[in-house]
Design a protein around this nucleic acid. Structure first.
Lengths: 323, 323
DNA sequence: ATACCCCATGACAACGTTGTCTCGGTCGGC
DNA sequence: GCCGACCGAGACAACGTTGTCATGGGGTAT
């Protein structure tokens, strides 16, 4: 910028004014400056600008794994909204590791991101307190923060969706419906279990519930055990997309009524098509990021807790009769 | 940092030394400084550090669409390697729009990213010349840069993979094999067409080739036209993952031998399983980013052009006999 | 003609670090 | 007891912007 200034024969500040489109510069001068900028291939140093202004025009996104279609859809939406607001996205995957989540947040905050979008892995977010007090807004998506931290959250209707899924199977005559869920320490898994339980009411049988981290081996064994036991289930409700896919693999073509939480590509092309309760990952990302920007615009109201609806999509697997 | 210094009763520079683990600080002093840091909840301002050091510890990633499983897998690998090298990732989706690609690169460079990983959308990258000359290394992945720009590239064996796919169908007795590809202006599509053509040799028939941007409607119509014509194809080779899926939808269960370029989740669960030529998106990302960091470590050698192998995975659809 | 105001421009400090240089004190060797 | 080396620590400038305030010149109203 110094070079541009001397090339155009003006002061530093005038170049700054032109670059930022500030008023009060004679058109002819501005033109001369622009010519010098082009000639020298100058581009503003954003690091210096960030330092001076205290704003980085950057949003930090912490998710579980960007390679997971659910989160990459969410991430894409966050990116889009950020760009619409002139911000860039710093992103990182926590891999469901609370220490890693914390480390990412710490690093993002050291870089003075304007705001944070977090899909938390852990359940203790007291480490966020100083950042929040310092004025860095955060929005939690998909899962709420741990106790004592009251920030905006955008969740989907986990319990309601699960209830809906199980109700659907009940309406087709099933009475013994298994639940394969993620570890109950994960918020969404616990919520979905609650919905499952509520839908079943007196039919609830804890022997039909298996909750553990996903993985084909485990699911296959669990399924064999469930189906081989006395009074086996006639249907299964799977608690997330990965478990649904693992279950489909484990079933290896055997027909068993199934409704899964989370939609996934090609669910419609399998035979039978897979009935799911679909969330809207892009919607979660969009709403959360818009919430964040409304905070950045100065909204100081109490924390908002939003819940997005889910949608049951019948495709065949959830409409199979018992037996 | 100023506050920490006065709290600990030392000079600014001493705090800096402690924070950066530089030698030459008395252990007792260091301890006092650390105590002050904890008490004040201080964290280094990375913006200032970037400005001063001229390094941002940031890698810019430009891809087509982070929501696409292929690119999100690639992005995850880039992120991992970057983190292993102490860098964060700024990412953006170009949406196959050259202007957007350029804009993203420009923005990243204004932020003085240490290096760039680019999946290009356009075919003119002369705009990169100033950045490259300024010492910002770039690595192109999946597709090469336009003419005149000689940077490291990491591609997969597009032509070889296509040749392999078509050869596979030929070996199962097919003689009329259609090709559904992306717009030939896209490098990978053109390469795969070349491989298809090479494998067919004299059997090549341009009436069996359809190249256009993906989208179910188009694919369905194209397929109807191909299959309804005289001497219809007995097999089809699809030029990328999205087209493979669109084709499967359009076929709606009709049996037609098919081999697709790109693997995708659940390809094994469809019936028949979908035979594919699989790339390794994570491998592309990893190799490219390692290349970038070797440049950042000072490698000034000539541009390297790497090609990763592909793998044919027979699953059933590619082994169907003609008719 | 004088006073006033506005416009275009510039000088200067500050943002929070880190690299360089300097300085005082202690220690070891002769 | 003297000198050089070394160690811990600090002063200062610089990175490239932008916000604040100052300045001078020309136009307008009185």
């Amino acid at each position: 910028m110094k070079d541009v200034a001397s090339a155009a024969g003006v002061a530093l500040k005038t170049v700054s004014r032109v670059v930022n489109g500030e008023p009060g510069v004679h058109p002819a001068t501005a033109e001369r400056v622009r010519a010098a900028i082009d000639a020298l291939g100058y581009s503003r140093n954003e690091s210096a600008r960030m330092l001076r202004r205290g704003r980085t025009a950057t949003v930090g996104l912490v998710i579980e794994d960007i390679a997971d279609p659910f989160y990459s859809g969410l991430g894409r939406a966050v990116e889009q909204v950020a760009i619409d607001h002139g911000c860039l996205l710093l992103s990182g995957s926590s891999g469901e590791d609370p220490a890693r989540e914390r480390e990412l947040v710490r690093t993002f905050c050291a870089r003075r991101v304007d705001g944070l979008i977090v899909v938390p892995a852990g359940d203790d977010h007291s480490y966020l307190r100083p950042e929040l007090d310092a004025g860095t807004p955060a929005v939690f998506v998909d899962r709420p923060p741990g106790p004592g931290i009251d920030v905006d959250t955008v969740l989907c209707d986990n319990a309601g969706g699960a209830e809906r899924a199980v109700g659907h199977l009940l309406s087709y005559g099933h009475r013994r419906i298994a639940f394969l869920g993620d570890s109950p320490s994960i918020f969404t898994a616990a919520e979905r279990l609650a919905g499952y339980r509520r839908a079943l009411g007196g039919l609830f049988d804890e022997r039909l519930v298996v909750m553990r981290p996903p993985g084909l081996g485990g699911v296959r064994a669990d399924l064999e055990r469930l189906l081989g036991g006395e009074a086996p289930p006639t249907a299964v409700f799977t608690g997330n997309g990965r478990l649904t896919v693992a279950t489909l693999r484990a079933l290896a073509g055997r027909r068993l009524a199934l409704v899964g939480f989370d939609d996934f590509e090609l669910a419609d092309l399998l035979s039978p098509g897979v009935t799911v309760v679909a969330q809207d990952p892009a919607g979660l990302g969009r709403v959360a990021t818009e919430r964040l920007f409304s905070r950045l615009r100065g909204d100081r109201g109490p924390a908002q807790h939003m819940q997005l609806p889910v949608r049951l999509i019948p495709r065949g697997s959830g409409e199979l009769p018992p037996e």
